[in-house]
Structure formats: C-alpha cells, structure tokens
C-alpha cells in the first residue's frame, strides 16, 4: 500500500481505496480480517483515528463488518451488492446534478436534455 502525504487525497481515503480494490479484485476474501487498527497505524506511521476512519468508511459502504473484539471482516461481495453500490453512486450523482440545476434555474426538460446530450457524447 502506498500512502502519499501530498496527493491531495485524504489519507483515510487512500487506505479505504486500497482495501476496497483488494476486496473487489478478490485479494482479500470473504471472512478474512483487515489488519488491526493500531497495527496498521503503526505500519503506515499514521494516527489511529485516520485508520479508524478508513475502516468506518469501508463499513458504511458494506465492504466489511465490525465484529466486537475481533476487528473488521470482509463481507461477501456478490454481484447484486456491487450493482447496488454503483446504483447508489449514480443516484447520489444525479441528486447532486438536480440540486445544481435548481440553483442554475434549469427546467426539468433542460436537465433531461443535458443528460441525453452527455450520454450521446459519451457514446461517440
């Protein structure tokens, strides 16, 4: 795991990204445990709270489950769940777009047209 202090990406995010990739690509399997919070903090020379925040982020995403006194174990990653996760991201993104459109005074029709235009641009 490579942690950059100057990439602009928060360290907890970098840690979460690294474990997420490991889980999604099958290097960390269902039921396996993430390193202990303080153990990882020591290895990476970072604070305990930063590690904890990374693990809590992964837990919120449903990648891992906190088990009292045992640590964080990797959840089963079925395709449905992955799809679900991406669906949530799509919804979040669209909600943000709707909020911005409202501020900009765009009509519903204009918003839909913008999406369609972006889609067609992407396809070409």
């Amino acid at each position: 795991m490579i942690i950059s202090q100057s990439s602009g990406v928060p360290i907890y995010q970098q840690i979460a990204d690294s474990f997420r990739t490991d889980i999604l690509e099958g290097r960390l399997k269902e039921g396996e445990y993430l390193p202990s919070i303080r153990g990882l903090a020591k290895e990476l020379k970072i604070s305990v709270i930063t590690t904890m925040k990374a693990y809590e982020l992964l837990e919120a995403e449903g990648m891992v489950t906190a088990e009292q006194g045992k640590g964080y174990s990797v959840n089963a990653q079925d395709k449905e769940m992955l799809k679900e996760q991406h669906l949530r991201k799509v919804e979040d993104g669209l909600l943000q777009a709707i909020a911005s459109a409202r501020i900009a005074g765009m009509s519903e029709k204009e918003l839909v047209e913008t999406l369609q235009m972006l889609l067609s641009l992407k396809e070409n």
Partner: peptide, 14 residues
C-alpha cells in the same frame, strides 16, 4: 517517539 507511542497503543489494542 511517534513510533514508540504507536507501539505502546498497540500493546493492548484499545
């Protein structure tokens, strides 16, 4: 010193 503090915290996790 930072390393020693981290090691100390790890002695009995939490």
């Amino acid at each position: 010193l930072c390393e020693m503090i981290r090691e100390y915290l790890l002695l009995d996790e939490g």
